[in-house]
Simulated assay, not measured.
Amino acid sequence: MVQTLPLVRRREVDPARLDAFLGQMIGDLGATVSAALVVIGDRLGLYRALRGGEPVTTDELAARTGTAAVYLAPWLANQAAGGYVVYDPATRTWSMTPEQEAALADPDSPAFFPGSMELALGVLRDVSAIEDRFRTGAGFGWHEHDDGLFSGTERFFRPGYVANLTGTWLPALDGVVDRLRSGAEVVDVGCGHGASTTLMAEAFPESRFLGLDYHEPSIRTARVRAEEAGVAGRTRFEVADATELPPGRAALVTMFDCLHDMGDPHAAARAALRALSDDGTLMVVEPMAGDHIEDNLHPLGRVFYGASTLVCTPSSLAQPGGRALGAQAGPAALTAVLRDAGFTRVRVAITSPVNLIIEARP
């Protein structure tokens, strides 16, 4: 049966408003194309070679990085047009400000951003598959995505965890740091490549850590990361569903940016409750969001709603339950999930510009 669309009444276009909107879309197009160039610059060490503030010519940068000047010339011009590097027309040289370096050239900076572009490119490779799911309503599992999503996610989230996890977020939870210092069992659910697990293990040498994720390739990578960090003796990584947690001993269960991706977040929360000791704590780290759509209609909300459409909602729909909370669930919806699961004390412990950190107790 062929669907018939209703007739659309032609409306008058305001030329000035149209020009402004087209200007906005041109900016979006430039940003989309430039994401690929950021990834190339990161992989080839082009940003790192520009660190220090010393201006260089195109040929000097080419010699420094072992790349071809004929490709560097338009790459550099694109970067300058986007405000990612600085061009001096008087000397025809290129350089970076300290702020540009922090965002593009320093992987240890909490502002480091190329991982997000790697993540975005990985997701965009799956556009045809997501388009098909729009028609069918079916899911598209995390494991089905391009590998760029997995590595990009680790590199995108890790700087924020380095900056905040042990210094700010865990201390915001009542009594948790003292327990970790004296020695405790910790379960990190949805651990991915193990960035959060490994950082906690490095900070609290008396405690023991178990990282769980249903994605076997990520678990293999997490084991390598733990070896590299020298904490493999106190960490284990296992392939498991979020509803399959060991019962009853953990002082802390953590869920970093994953509860909203789960098909049945209520079941995952109930499993976390069962895994905790009577005085244990669940820490849920989620994307920053308000409780209503209108609260999130800003640039960060645009990013998270995009992620929800392309990754989070399809992932949830591919799992039993298919709840599809999405990346902008908000504190009210998250609190309701945790209370429905049996937690009696739930609060937003602290926030960052991009995260909600929720503490839940039995």
Results as ranks from 00 to 15, higher is better:
R181E: 15
D19F: 14
M1S: 15
V8R: 14
C258M: 15
G41Q: 08
S151D: 12
G175D: 03
M288G: 09
R347M: 00
H260G: 02
P247R: 13
R17C: 04
D147A: 15
E154I: 06
R249P: 03
G175A: 11
H292M: 00
G83M: 05
M117V: 03
D108G: 14
S182F: 00
P331M: 06
L121E: 09
R347T: 13
A184P: 07
D291N: 15
D28G: 04
A275F: 10
H266W: 09
R347G: 06
F304K: 05
A129S: 14
A73R: 15
G23W: 07
M96P: 00
L46T: 06
R125A: 14
E144S: 12
M117C: 12
L44N: 01
A250W: 04
S34V: 02
T335K: 05
H143T: 11
D42C: 07
D59I: 01
G152H: 01
S151N: 06
T65L: 01
G83F: 07
A201M: 08
A324F: 04
R208E: 09
R181D: 13
L7T: 14
E216K: 14
F343T: 05
R51S: 12
I350T: 15
R225Q: 09
L124T: 04
M288Y: 08
E206F: 00
L300A: 07
T93F: 00
F237C: 08
T153A: 11
S116L: 14
R339Q: 14
Q319C: 09
A120V: 12
L180T: 11
S151L: 13
R236Y: 03
E228H: 11
A195G: 10
D106M: 09
N78T: 14
E216M: 10
G41Y: 11
T168F: 02
S128F: 05
F156T: 13
P6D: 03
S95D: 08
E228Q: 13
D340C: 02
V354P: 00
F157G: 00
G139D: 09
L310E: 01
A251I: 01
D106V: 08
A105F: 01
G160W: 04
A102F: 06
G194F: 04
M96G: 03
L245M: 12
G137L: 10
R155Y: 02
R208T: 15
R179N: 02
R361Q: 14
D340E: 13
I293L: 14
L276S: 05
G27P: 10
V86P: 01
Q100S: 07
P89T: 05
G115D: 08
T344L: 07
T281G: 04
F157Y: 11
P107C: 04
L338E: 00
A105M: 08
G30N: 07
D14N: 15
G263S: 11
P353G: 06
A201C: 03
R9L: 12
M262R: 12
A250H: 09
G122R: 15
A77Y: 05
A275T: 06
N78R: 13
Y87I: 00
T4Q: 13
F140G: 06
G326A: 11
D257C: 01
Q328E: 02
M288S: 07
L37M: 14
E101W: 08
V86L: 12
E206I: 00
T197K: 07
R208Q: 11
E286F: 01
